[in-house]
């Protein structure tokens, strides 16, 4: 018996981490009917995008950049929830697995990074998001490879990780390219559309006639 079973630990840690994040996020007030409905619909939208993107676009997915933009427009919490729920919902239909919690964390972080961009550079536009999303294409792959590495290779060596990463790098670059392409093509409109609804999210102060 090997003393350290990292595969088990990292999977369980993922579950706890994602559960904790979700709990913390929802305990903060301000999730009214509009917010709940909007987050759920965006998550369903992203999940559908992640699931059905067909052969026509070489499996490039028009999804991850939208999660980032959601965070950018609606803030860290909405970004996190939409991100975390995207793999959760789509995996219900395309295959749940022990990788789900880590995917949820990664996607959630994508959403939160959008909010961070907004916070750090208030005047950033979709062009900044293109860079962020491109970066996430690779980062996401790298983090998920970490999970694969922990679960499936032993002993854990850097070389092992490197090989797994190298095996996945073509997929990663495809993902990054997809993010780049879609964010460039759709980023501006998406921000516009989401901003349009963002305005509708908060009930304006009532005026009495």
């Amino acid at each position: 018996m090997t003393g350290t079973n990292w595969g088990l630990y990292i999977t369980i840690a993922g579950v706890f981490f994602v559960a904790l994040l979700m709990l913390l996020m929802e305990k903060r007030a301000g999730l009214g009917a509009r917010q709940v409905a909007l987050i759920a619909i965006l998550a369903a939208f992203c999940a559908a995008g992640r699931t059905v993107t067909g052969v026509a676009l070489l499996f490039l997915q028009p999804t991850m950049f939208l999660v980032g933009i959601t965070g950018f427009v609606f803030g860290a919490r909405a970004g996190f929830f939409v991100g975390a729920m995207t793999p959760l919902i789509s995996n219900l239909f395309i295959g749940m697995g022990p990788w789900t919690p880590w995917q949820m964390i990664c996607w959630g972080l994508v959403g939160m990074s959008g909010a961070a961009v907004r916070f750090l550079f208030p005047r950033a536009g979709y062009k900044t998001m293109i860079i962020i999303c491109f970066g996430w294409g690779f980062l996401y792959g790298a983090v998920m490879d970490l999970w694969h590495w922990c679960v499936f290779t032993r002993p854990l060596t850097f070389n092992g990780y490197f090989l797994i990463w190298a095996a996945g790098v073509s997929f990663d670059s495809l993902r990054a390219a997809g993010n780049l392409l879609f964010c460039a093509a759709l980023g501006r409109q998406s921000i516009k559309i989401l901003n349009y609804f963002h305005k509708k999210m908060d009930v304006r102060y009532l005026e009495n006639l």
Binding site: I39, I41, A43, I89
Partner: peptide
């Protein structure tokens, strides 16, 4: 019980998913 809002959002998103695919 623990995370009502998250659970509700997941339920709503799951319920909307097939509709979304159909619309698409």
């Amino acid at each position: 019980r623990a995370a009502g809002k998250s659970a509700l959002m997941v339920a709503l998103a799951t319920r909307m998913f097939p509709t979304m695919v159909r619309d698409l």
